[in-house]
Amino acid sequence: MDFELPLFLFNKNAGEFYMKSDTAVPVKDMPKTDPRMKLIAAKLKKESFKPDALIEILHTAQNAYGYLPKEVLSYITKALHLPPSRVYSTVTFYHFFSLKSKGEHTCLVCTGTACYVKGAQAILNEIERGLGLKAGQVTADNKLGVQVARCIGACGLAPAVVLDDEVQAKVAPEEIVQKINAKIGTL
C-alpha cells in the first residue's frame, strides 16, 4: 500500500512553530546604538536597499566587525528583503567573509605559488610548532588567529606574511614566531 503524502494539510501548530523560529533569529535584539550598526545602516541607505548590493554591504559589515555575527546577517537580510538562505549561501561562498571571529590579531601566511615555492609551508610548520596553531585556528583567548591566503600579490617579496595589516617581506621560518610575539607584546 502506497503512502499518501500529507501535502496540503494545515498544521494546527504551525502558528506556534513560526513564533518559535522568530526568536531563533533575534532581530529585535539588535543594538541600534552600536556605531558599527550605524555604519551598515548608512551603507544600506547609500545603496538604496538594492538586493544586488548584498556583497558590498557584507564587505562593510565584515570590515566593521571583523566577522559577520548572526544578528548582523539577519538585519541585512531583513533590510534587503532577501531570503535568509540566499544571504547565507553568498556569505559562505566567498573567502573574505567569515562567520566566526578571526582573533584580535591576525597572522596571514600567503600560500600563493611564489610563496609556496619559496617555503610558505615551512613558515606554517614553524607556527604550528611554536604556537600550536594550524591555519584557520584561533588561540583560546582569541588573541591571535592564523590564516592562509591564496596570493596577496606581493610575489616579489616571497615568502610573505601579513601581521595585522603589515606585510612582512621575505620571512625566514625561524623568525616568524619571534615576529608574532613582538607584535602581540607591543600592542
Binding site: F17, Y18, K20, S21, D22, A24, V25, K70, L73, S74, P83, P84, S85, V87, Y88, S89, T92
Partner: peptide, 14 residues
C-alpha cells in the same frame, strides 16, 4: 543544501 541560516529545517521561517 541549507535551509535559512544553515539552521535545522524544522526551525525555518521561510
Amino acid at each position: 543544501v541549507i535551509s535559512d541560516f544553515n539552521s535545522p529545517w524544522g526551525e525555518s521561517v521561510t
